[in-house]
Amino acid sequence: MLLLPALLIVVGFMGYPLLYSVRISFLNYNLMAPNDVRFIGFDNYRKLFTDSEIKYVLLNSIKWVVTVVFFQFILGFILAMLLNKKFFGKKIYQSVVFLPWAVSGFLIGLIFKWVYSEHSGILNFMLLKLGIIDSPISWLGDGKYAMIGPITGMIWYGIPFFGIMILAALQSIPTDIFDSANIDGCSGIQKLFYVIIPFIKPTIIMTLLLRVIWVFNSPDIIYIMTGGGPANASNILSLYVFNQAFYSLDFGYGAAVGILMMALLVLYALVFLTLTRYERSGDF
């Protein structure tokens, strides 16, 4: 009984839109022509295959997810290792380095856009001063570089999350495992690969799974820094859905892209879980 409100709200507001968007994806539903809403079968899905933009955007999404999650994980791991020891001022240090977690994508986009600004941005100034570049680079306006800014912003945003999760896992490792590893004469690196990583593997797998989905679905920073441009150079699938809905007002096609996105996520989750489970049973 106590669960009822939660269940009703979640099923009502999540199940319903989900089914409804399947329906919309079979309709010609454009807000520009609100009186011309009609059933068109698989036309929106056929468009997915002929849309030349979408392949490009899909490729960008993969680039975005892989780079962001990779660096978030590596840096988050290092951060967690650093925090797993006692040092002076650790409590306050930990609170500060975890702070980006609470900041909004909007604000991060804003700050990084300012840092990467072509003419008054601090980054170009530093690079010029150090002699690394000769003339200011248009970080956000040049298609070659447009992904770099949002990617660094997103990495910065997500390091704390990985740090928190991995730190908690590290702290759950019983100390006697380390003692026996020491007795066996393990070096630091050996300990890392043969003791620490196997022990916290479940956490790593779960965190990676969740983060990939989350990063795939989070276009805030891109939206603010580049708007997905120039000419889709930094556009990703989730932003593409939003742009279809908000700018093109093509709800039918937008819904179809949304369904594609969901399908990809489900597929990803299944593959990921099968692979990791398979590997786990092989390891132990």
Binding site: A6, L7, V11, Y16, P17, N217, P219, G258, M262
Partner: peptide, 23 residues
């Protein structure tokens, strides 16, 4: 119920934006 809650976390908010707008 637990699975419903966990699965609902995976639904991208943004794909629901169109049906929610219409609703």
């Amino acid at each position: 119920i637990l699975i419903i809650f966990l699965a609902s976390q995976m639904i991208p908010m943004i794909t629901a934006i169109i049906p929610m707008f219409i609703l």
